[in-house]
Simulated assay, not measured.
Amino acid sequence: MSKISGESAKIVEFLEEFVEKTELLSLTMLFKWDKEREYVERYLETTNGGLKNFFRNRAERGHSASNVIKAEEGTVVNQPPEKKRVVSMKRRRAEEGGSSKKVIDLTSNRCCGKEVSLDEVKRSTERQKPLHGYVGEEDLTSVWSEHFPMSVVAEEHFQSKIDLELLGYVDDKTRAQFTQVCAARLLCLGRFEELKADNEAERKKQESNWGQKKIELEGKLAAAMEQVAAKDKDLLELKADHEQLKGKLKKFEKEKTELEARVVELCVEKKEAETSKENHGYTMLEIGFERARKQAEYFHPDLKFDNLDPIKVVHNGTLVDDDEVDVEGGGDHDPQDGEA
């Protein structure tokens, strides 16, 4: 078992299992295959083609596979000799719909070596029927008329003395060979025209398919062009928005520059206002000091107040500058002296 192929091993396993359950296989059991013909055909096709042909020939001769004549023990049933057939008929399961169709098997023929569908042959003969038959008496001049005098026309127009001498000069075998040559060449020409017609039909079919594909491609191209046009429109709108935003940005930048300049101006004005406020305080201090000095002169006209100074203070009994007191950390002057 280790030296045989996997397929053979499966067959051996099947046979062993089958033998354990039932008796050994026999050819007479295989004859009863009407109900499972497909599986038996598949098995015989992979194992023994000759046996398959044997079953097929029996069916064609009218023998039923289920009614087998059993020979008595020790006797031999004589079977008719199988005839050699160059062209055989066989059934094949169609790929679509599960139906079967007949084909002419010419694989064993040295000339053709292929299979021809009977449907194709039937269609060909159906188309040729008008050419192979005869027509009625509508037009007696037609060569397809059943009353056209073929022999008379041939004798009057194609049986001249020179032609008869030429045909009589060659022997029967030569005329037969010439007829075969003409027939073969006519067959070649006929097949050429048939293939030409098929090729023309195929070409027209392809052109139709190409036309259909062209229409589909044109439709796809039109849809793509519409999408491109829509994208171009969106792009133009985005460009317009971009230009508008650029204008707004320039405006905002200008406004920003103006606001920054205004901020600088406001800072200067603030500084000037603070300085003006401080100067205003000093001015008010000076005005108040002058009013106090004039009142003192009013009450004491005999005294001189020229040494009075608004920025000086009395500190430790001495008239000093106010900032000197701050630097020394003082400021404990007599309020009454300050007022004086």
Results as ranks from 00 to 15, higher is better:
residue 66 S to I: 08
residue 62 G to K: 07
residue 10 K to H: 08
residue 225 M to A: 13
residue 187 L to I: 03
residue 197 A to V: 06
residue 288 G to D: 13
residue 90 K to N: 11
residue 244 Q to T: 07
residue 165 E to V: 08
residue 235 L to G: 07
residue 200 E to P: 06
residue 245 L to C: 06
residue 230 A to R: 12
residue 124 S to K: 00
residue 47 T to C: 11
residue 8 S to A: 14
residue 174 T to W: 04
residue 291 R to Y: 09
residue 58 R to S: 12
residue 290 E to Y: 07
residue 75 T to F: 15
residue 87 V to T: 13
residue 180 Q to I: 06
residue 123 R to H: 02
residue 198 D to E: 13
residue 103 V to L: 12
residue 257 T to H: 05
residue 281 G to Q: 13
residue 329 G to D: 13
residue 13 E to K: 07
residue 216 E to S: 14
residue 235 L to A: 13
residue 83 K to M: 11
residue 79 Q to N: 01
residue 224 A to M: 04
residue 45 E to Y: 09
residue 34 D to Q: 00
residue 268 V to H: 12
residue 156 E to L: 11
residue 220 K to I: 06
residue 119 D to G: 05
residue 337 D to R: 02
residue 286 E to W: 07
residue 62 G to M: 09
residue 217 L to G: 06
residue 84 K to G: 10
residue 165 E to R: 03
residue 140 L to F: 10
residue 143 V to T: 03
residue 244 Q to L: 08
residue 269 E to F: 04
residue 188 C to A: 13
residue 234 D to L: 12
residue 246 K to L: 11
residue 37 R to Y: 03
residue 188 C to D: 12
residue 254 K to A: 11
residue 321 D to H: 11
residue 20 E to A: 15
residue 269 E to T: 09
residue 114 K to M: 14
residue 207 E to D: 14
residue 119 D to I: 00
residue 219 G to C: 09
residue 75 T to A: 15
residue 276 S to I: 05
residue 304 K to E: 10
residue 220 K to S: 04
residue 319 L to G: 07
residue 89 M to H: 05
residue 77 V to I: 04
residue 246 K to H: 07
residue 62 G to E: 02
residue 145 S to A: 11
residue 33 W to R: 00
residue 159 Q to F: 04
residue 173 K to H: 10
residue 153 V to P: 00
residue 303 L to V: 05
residue 151 S to N: 07
residue 261 A to G: 05
residue 153 V to S: 01
